[in-house]
Amino acid sequence: MRIYFPSSSSSETMLGTIWQYLYTFYLRFWFKWILRQITGKCELQRICHGYKPGAGRTTRIENSLNSSKNTVLQEGVSVKEDAVEACVTQIIKVKNINEQKDPKFKVNLQQCLIQISGYNLLFTTVEELRKEVFNSENIKHEKMLLQLWDLLMPSVKLESRITKQWGNIGFQGDDPKTDFRGMGMLGLVNLVFFSEKYTKAARHVLSHANHPSLGYSYAIVGINLTEMAYSLLRSGALRPHLYNTVAGKPLLHHFHQLYCYLAYEFDKFWLEEKPASIMEFNIYREKFHDKVKELLLEPEVSLVLKIDPKNYPEN
């Protein structure tokens, strides 16, 4: 008969799971109770006082509300913006907080909930744009597509709406609309935003994409990076970045700004890595993705595009 002895790693995992269970369902309550007796403040107050505005404070507030067994506190992570003030008032009442002794708490907690609700709303907005299918019969869609060409190729006239020229800015076929299937209008809006906001930088990146040996499909890679930004937003990985860089609620243009950072930084990463060919794109795409996810784990993370004005004076 063979007897199985668990490995040290599996034993550690088991002990970690048991500890997490005991802490979550039994010890956490008493730990918080003891701290309140000692400090005279509840966990939410201690977080607001112990951490400066940003990801450090807001993520801990979010975790605390999520871990609470009280429905009023739980609802704080999904509250709508117009109900934030009322929600904070309810939390103060439930936690029996003396506002006169802690006058800053209400303002600080309200700011955290605005950031949390804003993140949730931002994902909804981004998702709607992603689901919006590019329609060649939609004048607004067509105008935006032609605007992308004019921004990137100002000295070259487009021969016709359907042409091989689209390959010059990295589309796969004669009609770019087929390339937007995965990310919908979100992919196009990001490409245009980068080209409009950082025109000279975008053209410079395009020149790298057209390099004879290190080139890549500019537009296709851009849409791929939109998918990366979208997946990071959906998973919640962008919370620290947005909580650190946006004092209020994150808006759609903040998501577009993150895309600009990814587009610019990926180009630098690609050139530094010097892949043998475009066939290795998926490998280096994942390496870059891992690098970004690692950056997002840093407490003070702020993935803001910073361009040397000497190189791009118009930006």
Rank of each mutant, 00 (worst) to 15 (best):
E99D: 08
E99K: 11
E99N: 06
Q100I: 10
D102T: 10
D102P: 09
D102A: 09
D102I: 02
D102C: 03
D102N: 13
P103S: 12
P103F: 08
P103V: 06
K104I: 04
K104H: 12
F105I: 09
F105P: 09
K106M: 10
K106F: 10
K106D: 04
K106L: 08
V107A: 14
V107F: 14
N108R: 15
L109T: 10
L109V: 14
Q110E: 14
Q110C: 13
Q110D: 06
Q111V: 06
Q111R: 12
Q111D: 11
C112T: 03
I114F: 12
I114C: 08
Q115W: 02
I116H: 02
I116D: 00
I116V: 13
S117E: 06
S117R: 03
S117W: 03
S117G: 13
G118H: 00
Y119C: 04
Y119A: 06
Y119W: 01
Y119P: 02
N120Y: 00
N120A: 14
N120K: 06
N120S: 12
L121P: 00
L121W: 03
L122T: 07
L122E: 02
L122V: 08
L122G: 07
L122Q: 01
F123W: 03
T124P: 00
T124V: 12
T124S: 09
T124C: 04
T125H: 06
T125D: 08
T125G: 00
T125R: 04
V126N: 03
V126L: 05
V126I: 15
E127L: 12
E127N: 12
E127S: 13
L129T: 13
R130K: 14
K131D: 11
E132K: 15
E132Q: 15
V133I: 15
V133Y: 07
V133M: 09
V133A: 13
F134P: 00
F134W: 05
N135F: 02
N135I: 02
N135L: 03
E137I: 00
N138T: 05
N138H: 06
I139K: 13
I139M: 05
I139P: 11
K140F: 07
K140M: 03
K140Y: 04
K140D: 08
H141I: 03
H141G: 05
H141M: 06
E142T: 12
E142K: 11
E142W: 04
K143E: 14
M144F: 00
M144T: 13
L145Y: 03
L146I: 09
L146Y: 07
L146M: 13
L148P: 03
L148W: 08
L148E: 07
L148M: 11
W149G: 05
W149V: 02
W149T: 06
D150C: 06
D150A: 15
L151E: 14
L151Q: 14
L151P: 07
L152V: 05
L152G: 06
L152S: 10
M153V: 02
M153K: 15
M153F: 01
M153R: 15
P154N: 07
P154H: 06
P154G: 11
P154K: 09
S155M: 09
S155G: 01
S155T: 13
S155Q: 14
S155C: 06
V156I: 12
V156D: 12
V156L: 10
K157F: 00
L158H: 04
L158T: 02
L158S: 04
E159F: 00
E159M: 02
